[in-house]
């Protein structure tokens, strides 16, 4: 809990140390290390088959690592006294008996964990499944199953959440809701680890990003740091003059598609350079897909190197 006087931002709640998993001759996870801190949403990103799910399953004691270990609150998951109260996990949207109602599914977990069964109803309400509580999971859409998985994760009101592709199958409103929900949890000091292969989902909510491909960590950095270094697209009537002015201001400039692609300076500096050079700007756009750019570059390089 957060009751003690330590600054919880400095505590690594999730600590993954050199996790490795070999299936036959395939190294599905190859020395993965990273940490996740309270108050932050950590995005665990990678293309399909990168080893994300296997890593999460090793963290939760479901898959035995070939080597390495993962600690949550300083202990391995299997050594936690009351795991459901410390860690909430939503792994995939298929873990339901189709003949069982949503409420019963959660009540089973409550009973086994020694939680009051009213927590099942509360979690259903939080995740917007109250109306569907007594329906069999058989008739649930993928989005509803995702919500039920999330309801299960929050049953014990844990301070650590580990979610595997929670946005899969959610409609735009659901994704928006999920994002707000995760943001809220991080803001009240929870540690949230979210895996995804869809960057757009994570880009808007993550504080910190760990990118994996082929079982290895490629980048582990604050989101802001990764997105920085994106380019500005600048249209102008006087490209040569502006280019010279920008380079004097310390920018790196290339010319392509009748535009200047500028990095190393911000929009204001571009405006100033244009003013000094007497250049007319026709366009000034910050490239939003910074993370996607980084992600593609990194994973492509990795794939190329391996192939």
């Amino acid at each position: 809990m957060l009751g003690d006087c330590r600054d919880w931002h400095d505590v690594s709640v999730i600590e993954v140390q050199e996790l490795t998993k070999t299936f036959g001759t395939v190294r599905a996870v190859d020395g993965v290390s990273f940490t996740a801190r309270p108050g932050e949403v950590t995005g665990f990103l990678g293309p399909n088959g990168a080893g994300k799910t296997t890593t999460l399953r090793m963290m939760l004691g479901l898959v035995a690592p070939t080597s390495g270990r993962a600690l949550i609150n300083g202990r391995r998951y299997v050594d936690l006294e009351r795991p459901v109260v410390e860690v909430g996990a939503a792994l995939e949207a298929t873990g339901f008996n189709p003949g069982r109602s949503a409420r019963d599914h959660l009540r089973v977990a409550c009973t086994a964990a020694g939680l009051p069964t009213r927590r099942a109803d509360e979690a259903l309400e939080t995740t917007g499944l109250k109306e569907a509580a007594d329906r069999r999971v058989l008739g649930f859409s993928l989005g509803m199953r995702q919500r039920l998985a999330l309801a299960e994760a929050i049953l014990g009101e844990p301070r650590v959440l580990i979610l595997d592709e929670p946005a899969n199958g959610l409609d735009p409103a659901g994704i928006r809701w999920l994002r707000d929900f995760l943001r809220h949890l991080a803001d009240i000091g929870c540690t949230v680890l979210v895996s995804s292969h869809v960057l757009a989902e994570v880009e808007q909510v993550a504080d910190h990003v760990v990118i994996v491909a082929r079982g290895r960590v490629l980048r582990d950095a604050p989101l802001a740091e990764l997105v920085r270094g994106g380019e500005l697209k600048v249209g102008t009537r006087q490209p040569e003059q502006l280019r010279r002015a920008l380079e004097e201001a310390g920018a790196t400039v290339r010319f392509e598609d009748d535009r200047l692609w500028v990095s190393g300076v911000d929009a204001e500096q571009v405006g100033r350079a244009a003013l000094d050079a007497g250049a007319v700007l026709t366009e000034l756009v910050e490239e939003r897909s910074g993370l996607e750019h980084v992600f593609l570059e990194l994973t492509r390089a990795e794939m190329g190197e391996a192939g």
Binding site: G61, L62, L80, V84, A89, G95, N97, A109, A112
Partner: peptide
Amino acid sequence: TGEYRHGTITQAFLVTPR
């Protein structure tokens, strides 16, 4: 086998890792 088939074994082992 129903637990394996439907993946509910995951819930069971997450709640009770022993």
